[in-house]
C-alpha cells in the first residue's frame, strides 16, 4: 500500500510535468495548427539559464523567474522569426520548420555550450525529503505537484476570465470569425507562444530539479512524451492535454513500479501499446478538441 501511494505521488509529479508541456503544445496547435517540435528546446534554454545562474551565484529564487522569462522570450522570438513566415502554409511545412528550428538550436547548444551534460546547482532543500506517515516524499516532487496545481488554476482562470484568454479560445474554434470581431491574429498567436514558453520554462525548472543536469537534447524526450500525451488527450484540446499528460505519467510510473524485472526493458513499448489501445476506443483522444468537427470515414 505504501509503495502504491509512493508511486502515485511520483506519477502526479511526472504526469504534471507532461501535462504542462502538453498544454503548451496544445495551445500553439489549437491557434495555428502547428505541432511545435522545438518546444523541447525552450525547455533546454531555460535549463541552461538555470545552469548559468548557478555558476554566477545568482540565488535560485531569482534564477527560476529568469529561466522562465528566457523561455517566454525564446518562444515569442521563435514565432516571429521562424513560424510567422509559414503561418498560412500546410501543416507539413510548419512541422518541418519546427524540426529545423529544433535541430538548429541543438547544434548551437552543442557547439557553443557543450555537447556533454552540464551540472546545475540546485538548493539543498530540493534534494531533501519529507516523511508523511510511512511515506517518504522528495521536496522536488512536492514542489512539482504544487507548481502544476498552481499553473493549472492560473491557466484555467486566464482562459475563462481574461479577454485575451477568451479570444484565444474563440480563435481556436474559428479563427476567421474571431478576426472579424477585431481579434488580431498576431496577438492570439504571439499570446499562445508566450504562454507555451511560460509552460515550457516552468516544466524545465521542474525537470531540472529532478535531475540536476542539462544537456543539448534535454528537451527532446519530455516533449516527445508530451506530444504523445497531447494526442492521447485529443490534439488541440487543452483539457485533453492535461488529462493525457497525467494518464501518461501514471502509465509510465506504474509500469516502472509493477512490471516484473525481466520485462522492464519493454516498459516504453508497453506504455505506447496502452496509449494506442486507448486511442482505438477513443480515436479523437480522451477529451476531443471542439474544433474537430470533421467526420472521418
Amino acid at each position: 500500500m505504501d509503495l502504491f501511494l509512493q508511486q502515485t505521488v511520483n506519477a502526479f509529479a511526472l504526469g504534471g510535468t507532461y501535462a504542462l508541456l502538453a498544454l503548451g503544445l496544445a495551445m500553439v496547435f489549437s491557434t495555428m495548427g502547428l505541432i511545435n517540435f522545438a518546444h523541447g528546446e525552450l525547455m533546454t534554454i531555460a535549463g541552461y539559464i538555470l545552469m548559468a545562474c548557478g555558476l554566477a551565484g545568482v540565488p535560485f529564487a531569482l534564477s527560476v523567474p529568469l529561466a522562465i522569462c528566457a523561455a517566454v522570450i525564446a518562444a515569442v522570438a521563435m514565432e516571429r522569426i521562424a513560424f510567422r513566415p509559414v503561418r498560412n502554409a500546410s501543416g507539413a511545412t510548419m512541422l518541418v520548420t519546427s524540426f529545423a528550428v529544433s535541430m538548429i538550436l541543438q547544434v548551437l547548444f552543442q557547439n557553443f555550450i557543450s555537447a556533454r551534460s552540464q551540472a546545475v546547482l540546485l538548493p539543498q532543500v530540493l534534494s531533501e525529503s519529507v516523511r508523511f506517515g510511512g511515506l517518504v516524499i522528495g521536496v522536488n516532487k512536492i514542489a512539482a505537484i504544487a507548481t502544476t496545481i498552481v499553473m493549472l488554476i492560473f491557466l484555467d482562470r486566464f482562459m475563462k476570465h481574461h479577454r485575451v484568454g477568451i479570444a484565444m479560445r474563440a480563435a481556436a474554434e474559428d479563427f476567421s470569425v474571431a478576426r472579424l470581431m477585431g481579434i488580431r491574429a498576431n496577438t492570439v498567436i504571439a499570446g499562445a507562444f508566450a504562454l507555451s514558453g511560460f509552460l515550457a520554462g516552468v516544466a524545465a525548472v521542474l525537470w531540472v530539479s529532478q535531475r540536476a543536469s542539462v544537456d543539448p537534447l534535454m528537451g527532446f524526450t519530455p516533449v516527445l512524451k508530451a506530444f504523445i500525451a497531447a494526442i492521447l488527450g485529443g490534439l488541440g484540446s487543452l483539457r485533453g492535454a492535461v488529462a493525457g499528460g497525467f494518464l501518461l505519467g501514471f502509465i509510465e510510473i506504474y509500469l516502472a513500479a509493477y512490471l516484473p524485472q525481466g520485462m522492464q526493458e519493454f516498459r516504453d513499448p508497453i506504455a505506447l501499446c496502452l496509449v494506442v489501445l486507448v486511442l482505438i476506443f477513443r480515436p479523437n483522444g480522451l477529451i476531443p478538441s471542439p474544433a474537430l468537427k470533421a467526420e472521418k470515414v
Binding site: 479570444a167 479560445r169 474559428d174 476567421s176 470569425v177 470581431m181 481579434i183 471542439p290
Partner: peptide, 22 residues
C-alpha cells in the same frame, strides 16, 4: 457569417463579449 458560426464552446455572454472586442 453564413452558417451562423457562433463560438460553440464559449458561453452566450463570452460570444457577445468577443463581438465587442474592438
Amino acid at each position: 457569417p453564413e452558417g451562423r458560426r457562433v463560438f460553440g464552446t464559449l458561453s452566450v455572454r463570452e460570444n457577445l463579449l468577443m463581438g465587442a472586442y474592438s
